[in-house]
Amino acid sequence: MRIPCPFCGSRDSREFVHRGDAGPARPADGADAEAMFDYVYQRANPAGLIREHWYHAQGCRNWIVVERDTRSHAVSGGAWPGPAR
């Protein structure tokens, strides 16, 4: 599988560490335990497109967001997380 790194270009997935769903957002300070439980543990596990965090450990050592189809492993995009840099 090839991962499109926004800095390095297309690289073998062996250079990366996979973290998982990039969707969940950390609840605001003071959120109750249930909201934190959902944030930390609950995942949708979709059959289809998912946006995920990958870490380019053996490359530029940056976190990136990769869009992948869980049915085919087809990767359709790689971008920086958060605001444009």
């Binding site: 390095c8 690289r11 062996r14 250079e15 053996q58 490359g59 530029c60 050592r61």
Partner: peptide, 10 residues
């Protein structure tokens, strides 16, 4: 230039 691994060595 590239940052990668050669024979599994960073």
């Amino acid at each position: 230039a590239a940052i990668s691994q050669i024979a599994h060595i960073g």
